[in-house]
Design a protein around this nucleic acid. Structure first.
Lengths: 346, 346
DNA sequence: CTGAAAGCGCTTACAG
DNA sequence: CTGAAAGCGCTTACAG
């Protein structure tokens, strides 16, 4: 009752269960936890009593004893972004079945706020921390390197000697370029984000490698912003004053917004997608990818899976399992829609 | 140390602080909490000792005594959506300074998952719950009506007798239509989402009211999907085979994606925005609103503020303040960009 | 002005 | 097979 002032009855305690069942709290505890030895009859009677009274153990008390709170902290600076969302859902999914709850800590880019949250997490005796962010080559504004609890990094820069989960961006780029090659495209351009992002270089490297492997020419990647506007500009650079033979027949874009801009610009020039030019995006941001005309084929970073894996890894560290430090790169997948022509299986 | 197996020292306890300072734990506790009476000197010595040892009280133990855990649960089924994100950030912001941490519970639309999360929250003795979702006229798949802790609803349908926070959608619609009127637009159309959404009717009602107040004709709102595609279709319905006098000079759209579709369709027909037609969207989803050509004027629901208010309201209930049940509607605001011409202050 | 005691709700050796 | 005792880390009356 959210607004009713009537004093709700306090939760049933183990003591009440025990006295209702006519046993000691020790015995009641053991009966409910499947510990100790007693007649099946006694155990069942106690359990039934607990059920009847709606007993639920106070996990604060349990945590105090067990030195394990069954909570973890999730630190992020990507509160308005779309990356942390699927990631958080994945983390949450992986943990809920283990009875572990997740504290959401929005640290923005503010060290003071970060410290505030980290202190709160430590005070609340979380079993571990997952740090996540909006880009893989920047560290959160907090030092997590000397905590006494396990830390897992996911989609943010890890500390030296820590465990981090990332998407395999180079692999994702390969998927895209290989797809173009398999479709018979020969003049494949790459339009990406700012040079200040590590992933821009990683994807560009993979782009060059795949083309080299296929004996195809690689143009210098066009670097700009992560925006539709840059997609438009890039098309101008690619096509203005060029003869047919010099223009690309495929464009691999650094994200879906760039791809959207590219597709719109091509349409406005009367250039057919996918007939004349194939386009692939990155991120598989469904709301964008499905709204482009035609719908956009895009590389998906499998962020929910990344979150799941990070959650499970943390659980295993908390459980005392050892794990090697280092970066784990998880594969991307290509989601084929209609912007490349001849869709595989479509 | 995320992967290092070296056994980290356990946290410093109050007992250790007390013995280091040569006092009893009771005195140490009182010194640190500003309770009891003792010489300022003793108090300061104890505090200094605590500081030196890096003592941080175990909030699990504190919670057990105080019957207050300084945690709340945030239930949502909008994990992939964009509504819950600013809202969650607002909630988190409002609570962090009060030392209250937020459990993130992704219940999707699964009653089993919902119950699992609610039980976990109750077991962990959260002080209260905030329920949020992706639309205002649907209830989460869980019954929150008979909990013993306060519940606040935000951007999801509340239970009878509960407290809910919503954006004032009718007010937001008024803002948009009044803006058109003030700019001298006379034939204002409304293109919105599916009739199954309550907000669609609320906004349409406000649309009609404002036009009536200005003595302007209201066309029947065009209802469809929340998508760009529907924006395109709607333009066809509005303009195909119509003479100039029958077509609108302004379109108020139910969300930014529809508005984007409308703007793109108009451009493709060679109709100038904002010269010939003004367009306003809803949601102020920045990444969309800023990418339309021209940038889109849009109604912002102030979701972060909604989250803040919800958080503060919960805090006040937890603190024992009474509050009247009912819906609190928070005002929207119009973010003026360039899709209506003559931008105010621009 | 300071400390011994009881207790929050539970679990876990240890006796009987 | 069951229970009394001690204890997790803290706080709060209550004595002295």
């Amino acid at each position: 009752m959210s607004s009713d002032a009537s004093p709700a009855p306090p939760p049933v305690t183990l003591r009440e269960v025990a006295s209702a069942a006519g046993v000691s709290v020790a015995t009641a505890s053991k009966a409910l936890n499947g510990q100790g030895r007693m007649t099946a009859e006694t155990r069942e009677r106690i359990r039934e009593t607990a059920r009847r009274l709606g007993f639920r153990p106070n996990s604060l008390a349990q945590s105090l004893l067990r030195k394990r709170s069954f909570t973890v902290g999730l630190l992020t600076n990507d509160t308005y972004g779309r990356f942390s969302l699927p990631l958080m859902a994945g983390v949450s999914d992986a943990l809920v079945d283990a009875g572990v709850s997740v504290f959401l800590c929005n640290v923005e880019d503010d060290p003071r706020l970060g410290q505030l949250h980290v202190d709160a997490m430590l005070d609340k005796r979380v079993d571990g921390i997952i740090a996540t962010g909006k880009r893989i080559d920047r560290h959160l504004p907090i030092d997590l390197s000397n905590l006494r609890i396990p830390v897992i990094y996911a989609f943010t820069q890890p500390d030296a000697g820590a465990i981090g989960f990332e998407s395999d961006d180079a692999g994702g780029a390969r998927l895209a370029v290989e797809h173009f090659c398999a479709l018979g495209r020969r003049r494949i351009a790459h339009v990406s984000g700012p040079a200040s992002f590590a992933v821009v270089h990683e994807r560009a490297r993979a782009y060059r490698e795949v083309l080299a492997e296929h004996g195809l020419p690689a143009a210098e990647p066009l670097l700009g912003a992560w925006s539709e506007g840059w997609g438009h500009e890039a098309v101008a650079k690619l096509f203005d004053g060029k003869g047919r033979a010099e223009t690309p027949d495929a464009v691999f874009c650094g994200n879906d917004q760039i791809a959207r801009g590219v597709i719109d610009a091509l349409r406005e020039r009367g250039i057919g997608v996918p007939e004349e030019i194939g386009v692939i995006g990155f991120d598989n941001w469904e709301i964008v990818a499905e709204a482009t005309r035609p719908p956009l084929t895009s590389v998906d970073m499998n962020l929910a899976t990344l979150g799941r894996e990070a959650g499970l890894a943390l659980l295993s560290l908390v459980g005392g399992q050892a794990a090697l430090p280092g970066i784990r790169k998880l594969p991307c997948r290509l989601v084929v829609r209609q912007s490349c022509g001849r869709p595989v299986g479509g």
